[in-house]
Amino acid sequence: MGHDETLFDGEFLKKLEYLHIVSKRAFAGQFRAERRTRQRGSGLEFADHRAYAPGDDFRRVDWRAYQRLNKLLLRLFEEEQDLPIYLFIDCSRSMADGRPTKLAYACQVAAALCYIGLAHLDRVTLAPYTDQLGRELLSQRGKGQIFKVFRFLSELASGGHTDSKAAFEIFCQRKQPRGIAVVISDFLDPHGFDQGLNLLRFSHHDIFAIHVVSRSDSEPVLRGDLQLVDAETGSTHDIAATPSLLAAYRRIYTDFCEEVARFCSRYRLGYVRTETEVPFEDVVLQVFRQNRFLR
C-alpha cells in the first residue's frame, strides 16, 4: 500500500489517546489492563461482597459491614483486564476503488483504532480477509507495537474475491477469546454481507461494522454505452448509462446501504457508514464518537 509508516501526526495521536473503544459487553482478558471484566480481583473498582471463607485475605474483610451486620463479609473488586479487539479489514479487489481507495481508507481507520486499543493495553489483532483470512497480526499489546501495526497495514494489498462467511468461518473455528470484532468493509459480498456478520454474531463477539463507501460507488459518473467490469470477478455487463439508469442505480445503492444498516440495527451491531472523501480524522474523532463506538 505504501503509506507512510507514521500515518498520523503527533497531535492526532494525542487526541487518539484520550479515546477508548467502547464495548457493550465485558469480556474476559488475559492480562491486567484497564478494561473492566466480569472477573473479581485486585482492581480498584468495588464490585460486591461475599461471605468470608477460611483462607481469605483478612485485608479484604469489610469491617464496617461486620459492625452493621455482624457478619464477616469480604469486599470484592473488579478485575481490570485487557480486551481482545479483532479488526477485520476487507482486502478484496473491490476495496481498491475510490480516491483514496477504500482499502487505504480502511487501513487508516484500522490504524487509528489500533492505536486507541494499544494505548489502553487492549490486545489488538489485525485480520485482513477476502474469501479467506489473510496473514494476521496477532494480539498486539501496548503502544510500542503501533509501528509494527503501521508496517503491517502498509503491506496490505487488495486482491481476491469477497467471501466474508468463508473467511470468518476460519476465524471462528479457532475458538478465539470473545471480544470486539470490527469489520471494515464495503460489504459488497456476492454471497451476502450478512453471512459473515452472522458468524461473528453467533460467536458472541461484540461487532462493529464500519461501512466504507466511495463516491464512485454511490454516485458513479458514467456516460454513454459502456462495458462494466467487475473488479473482483472480471465479469462484464454492457450498459447504456442513461440518467434514468444512474438514478435507478443510486436508488439501489441507497437501499443496499440501508439494508446493511437495518441488519446491524436489528441485531444491535454497531454500524458506521463513511465515505472515503470524508477525512478519516473526522470519522475517528467525531463520527465514531457520535455512534458511541468510541468515547
Binding site: 473491490s94 476495496m95 476503488d97 477504500k102 469477497t162 464495503d186 459488497l188 459480498d189 456476492p190 466511495s214 464512485s216 460507488d217 458513479p220 458514467l222 454513454g224 454505452d225 459502456l226 462495458q227 462494466l228 467490469v229 467487475d230 473488479a231 473482483e232 470477478t233 465479469s235 462484464t236 455487463h237 454492457d238 450498459i239 439508469l245 435507478a248 442505480y249 439501489i252 445503492y253 443496499f256
Partner: peptide, 23 residues
C-alpha cells in the same frame, strides 16, 4: 455484432445487476 464498448471497472457488479434486472 457486439461492438466493444469502453470498459469501466467498478467495485462490483452486484448492485448493477440488480439495477439491470430490475429495469
Amino acid at each position: 455484432l457486439k461492438l466493444r464498448h469502453p470498459r469501466v471497472a467498478v467495485a462490483s457488479l452486484l448492485l448493477w445487476e440488480r439495477v439491470l434486472q430490475d429495469r
